[in-house]
């Protein structure tokens, strides 16, 4: 492992992982993340950020490489366990994805729990997709993407788009997605990788998932909440990228197996020793590689 990844792991272990292990309120967590966010630039280099075409219930931004007017669109949902967000980090990630894939990005800051439990965020995702169609973007030029909880949300939105009979996007990308909120698998990566994962701790996982479903455990198996239980017939291909030491490694594996079992197409990339969300850390060499591979995937399905 290179020194950049080791440094990122060390930093994450001392900050984010500790925060997730400790009994801190959501407000405290959001304040701490605001402080961490100062490490990332507010405006990505070489990209314009615009706020036109507002959504009714949540904020959304356009991220567009300066010298391009591409017709590919990346509809991106940020991560943060459905309760927090990292806007600068995600904006930087979307900017690099857009530059590599020659696409314009639509970054949707869907509503967060516990103030807005499911289905608020999910509906925001659907509204953002509907808006793209209404604005005249061809569905076969749209790719859904998401990181962590945003990856799970992207898959849930993909299922809902098909269920509503809307035109389908070209593909979906799930980076270390959270796809299974039931947490009933005893011998899973949630247990095996609990110590190896440099970023995430599930010490308070029960509280977080309960917040997302508004305290209704019956929703844990709902396919829009836990897309690992979805039926993926007639859906476009999905690319999963996940680190081998992540607690959520099996979320990707399980969702991909489910996709293939129900007639869909899924590809999983397991990156050796990469921490959760490494694609968004520009100083890690493998982040650039991962982004290039995502861009290739976009080019394959949106030629």
């Amino acid at each position: 492992m290179n020194w950049q990844t080791t440094t990122a792991n060390l930093f994450a272990r001392l900050t984010i992982k500790q925060m997730m292990r400790r009994d801190v309120s959501i407000a405290t967590m959001r304040r701490a993340i605001d402080a961490l966010e100062r490490l990332f630039p507010r405006r990505p280099v070489d990209c314009e950020v615009a706020h036109d075409h507002a959504l009714a219930d949540c904020e959304a931004e356009w991220v567009r490489p300066r010298d391009l007017s591409p017709d590919r669109v990346l509809l991106h949902f940020p991560g943060g366990a459905y309760v927090v967000r990292f806007p600068n980090f995600e904006r930087g990630l979307v900017a690099r994805l857009c530059r590599a894939a020659q696409a314009r990005g639509r970054l949707v800051f869907y509503r967060l729990a516990p103030e807005h439990p499911f289905p608020a965020g999910h509906e925001d995702g659907l509204a953002a997709y509907r808006q793209l169609l209404d604005l005249g973007f061809a569905p076969q030029r749209i790719v859904l993407s998401g990181l962590s909880a945003g990856g799970g949300l992207a898959l849930g939105v993909l299922l809902a788009i098909r269920d509503r009979g809307w035109p389908l996007p070209a593909a979906a990308i799930a980076m270390s997605p959270l796809t299974d909120l039931t947490d009933t698998h005893v011998d899973s990566s949630r247990v095996r990788n609990a110590r190896r994962d440099a970023v995430l701790s599930l010490a308070h996982g029960e509280e977080l998932r309960s917040m997302y479903v508004g305290g209704d455990p019956a929703l844990y198996t709902h396919p829009y909440v836990s897309p690992a239980f979805g039926d993926y017939h007639d859906l476009p291909p999905v690319l999963f990228q996940v680190g081998s030491t992540e607690v959520m490694l099996d979320d990707s594996r399980r969702a991909a197996s489910r996709i293939r079992a129900t007639g869909g197409s899924a590809e999983v990339e397991i990156w050796d020793g990469m921490p959760h969300g490494w694609q968004g850390l520009p100083f890690i060499p493998d982040a650039g590689r991962a982004i290039e591979r995502i861009a290739d995937f976009v080019r394959i399905h949106v030629p």
């Binding site: 990339e269 397991i270 493998d286």
Partner: peptide
Amino acid sequence: EPVREVLTRS
């Protein structure tokens, strides 16, 4: 191949 291990160092 449905699953790829990328850049395995081990």
